[in-house]
Amino acid sequence: MRILLAIISVISFISCQEEIEIKGGTFEPEIYVKSILSTDANFEVQMSETRYVTDNQITFIDNADVSILDLTSGDAFQLDNQGDGIYKAKSSPQTGHDYRLLIDAHLGEFIYSHTRVPNNIDVKAQIDTIYDNEGLVESLDINLEIENDPNTEEFYTVEIQSYMPENLEDKDTSNPFEQGLTVESEQSTENAEDTEDGDSNETRDNEIAYKGLDFFSDSEFSDGEASSINAQIKVDRNQLIEIYRENCNCSSSATGSQFNEEFNMRHYLIKVNSVSYEYFNYIRSRELNEQTSNFNTTHTTPSSIEFNIGNGIGIFGAVNVQTVYIN
């Protein structure tokens, strides 16, 4: 028995974990295309090659012929290369139109996709602010009432933005939610969009914070199409702090009165987007993928992302932006 115990003791010191190299197949890059048509922006397409996970070198596709066809009006738009894989045209998509993306990357087969810009919706929002015992915001209860086309299923994303009022002296700095949210110009919304797409190198602290809050469709409220839906969204203080931290240029561990002061000075606005079906699936699958891609085991199958690009990967989607100004 003593021998047995000795053997077991030895085994206990043998590490069961060992670093190894993974053997995969040969990596073959694909063309990644991203183009989100937005009613408040010009046509834009971004193209690059996918690369191996440890490869830091980005290969942009700058020699492609990129065009977008408006299938509703019959118009065709040729997009010009701007460098770094970006192609643009000086026109904007129209509400309710169907669009086809066609790319000749000189690889033998056309890269293609299709999307539709959603119709306008009518959004009404109401926010109830819940405070804790110390007078700090506990949560925001957002009530959205959306009127839309009763004949089609619509898909929505809801975003929250954080920004710093430009003239602090003019603002009440006690609590951003007590005074309500005010957005002075449409420009700030556009800049927020740019930041979302990663296109802006500007670091203007007054409008960079962005966070996807929720996504839902008519079918979650009815059997399919609905003419009116009423969505309840709750945003707790942690989420707001997280939104702030991501963009505040402050230490992630910053705490204390200074932090509270800065945090309390920030204002927020809610954006409701009516999005295309493809884009809705894309962002929903991205959300799940983000939660699984940080960790990978042989027992894991990472959540897949729903793309809609033929002969490549990526997303060709559309957004009809409806910004809600709340006072």
């Binding site: 990596f27 990644y32 490869d55 990663g198 990967i313």
Partner: peptide, 9 residues
């Protein structure tokens, strides 16, 4: 399934 592909800019 190994997450071996980096996508985007």
């Amino acid at each position: 399934t190994f997450t071996d592909t980096k996508v985007g800019v």
